[in-house]
Design a protein around this nucleic acid. Structure first.
Lengths: 116, 116
DNA sequence: TATCGTTATTCCTATTTGAATATAACGATA
DNA sequence: TATCGTTATATTCAAATAGGAATAACGATA
C-alpha cells in the first residue's frame, strides 16, 4: 500500500517550481553541503541535480540554493534562508493536504489494484 | 497569476491513476459520449485518449469507462457510476487541498517570478 | 604555483514519448 | 447485407527528453 500515494507539484507556467523530487534534493543538499554529493546520495547525475537547482533558482524571485566553486574542498552549495522557508512551506502544504483530504484520498486509493 | 498553480496526481506504483488531464478527459467523455469526440474536443489524438482510459481502467478494480464499438453511430463510451464516484472524489480532493493549504500555497506562489 | 573536489557548461548519444497512419472488428439500422 | 462512425490495435517516424562523458573555471591551501 506504500506504492499508492499522492504527489503535489507547484507550477510556474509550464515548469515545476516545487515537487517531491526537488524538495528531497533540497534536503539532501542541506545535509550534504554540495550538489555533487547530494546527487551521488540520491543516485542522480550531477547534471540533473544541477539542472533541478537551476530551475528552482530561476522560478523564484530569490535563490533557494547558493553555490561556490573553488576553495579547499572544491566549493559547495547550501540552502538559503529563503530556500528553507519555501521547503518548509511545501512540506507543510503536503501534510495539510493529506490530512484535509483523507476521506477522498482513501476513496480513491482503496479502489486501486495492487501494483508491482 | 493564472499560470501559477498546484497539481495533484494520485499514483498506483509508478503510473498516474488520476490527475488533472485524466479528470478532464473523463468529464469530456461524459459530455461527448465517445472517446474519439472527446479527444477531438481536447485536441488530443484518439490513440492518446484511448491510452489514458486504458491506464485508468487497469489501475482501478472496476472500470471507470465502458465502451462499445458498432451500432448506428459506431459505438461510444460512457462513464460508469464508479467512474463518476472516482472523478467526484478527485475533484473534491483538489478543492479541499487548495482550501486547507491556502497559507502555504500563497507563501510559495507569491515568490514565483512571472512566466510567459 | 600545483593540487584538489566542486561548480558550470557543452556535446553527443540513447531512450522515451508522441503523433500520424493504417486497418480490422463491431453492430444497429436501412 | 451494405453503410456508418466508433473502438481497438499495430507499425512507423519524428521529436522531445534524459543521460553520459568530457572539460574549463574556480579559489583556498600547502
Amino acid at each position: 500500500m506504500a506504492n499508492k500515494h499522492l504527489k503535489i507539484r507547484i507550477y510556474n507556467g509550464g515548469t515545476v517550481a516545487m515537487g517531491p523530487g526537488k524538495a528531497e534534493l533540497l534536503e539532501t543538499i542541506d545535509t550534504c553541503g554540495s550538489i555533487s554529493s547530494a546527487a551521488k546520495q540520491m543516485q542522480m547525475s550531477y547534471r540533473r541535480a544541477w539542472e533541478l537547482v537551476d530551475v528552482m533558482n530561476k522560478c523564484f524571485n530569490q535563490p533557494v540554493v547558493t553555490s561556490a566553486s573553488g576553495g579547499q574542498h572544491g566549493g559547495g552549495a547550501h540552502l538559503t534562508d529563503f530556500g528553507r522557508f519555501i521547503l518548509k512551506s511545501y512540506r507543510d502544504l503536503v501534510v495539510k493536504a493529506q490530512l484535509a483530504t483523507e476521506l477522498e484520498l482513501n476513496q480513491i486509493l482503496s479502489n486501486l489494484n495492487q501494483s508491482e
